[in-house]
């Protein structure tokens, strides 16, 4: 499964939504720090790499998280 799909599916699962837009921001659509931890751990378990967690806490958008996860997975 591509990084994009991994991140999207876990994003939706953690936030309890059927779909998400790239511009959605985690902390403005029901996310909090504990859910953020859950999300990062799920993504990292599937991708097998460490994701730059600060991206989720600073930018917070789905697009930025996908980009960062993809970059991490390709190195």
């Amino acid at each position: 499964m591509s990084s994009d799909l991994v991140v999207r599916s876990h994003w939706c699962a953690v936030l309890g939504v059927a779909e998400a837009d790239a511009g959605d921001r985690f902390f403005e659509t029901g996310g909090d720090s504990l859910l953020a931890i859950d999300l990062i751990q799920r993504i990292e378990a599937d991708l097998g790499v460490e994701v730059p967690v600060e991206v989720l806490f600073t930018d917070g958008s789905l697009a930025a998280l996908i980009e960062a996860s993809t970059a991490a997975a390709s190195t």
């Binding site: 936030l15 939504v17 921001r25 902390f27 403005e28 659509t29 029901g30």
Partner: peptide, 14 residues
């Protein structure tokens, strides 16, 4: 959903 709350007028859903 958070989307429904935003449609209802919320600027952000914490």
């Amino acid at each position: 959903t958070a989307a429904a709350l935003k449609d209802a007028g919320a600027a952000a859903v914490d």
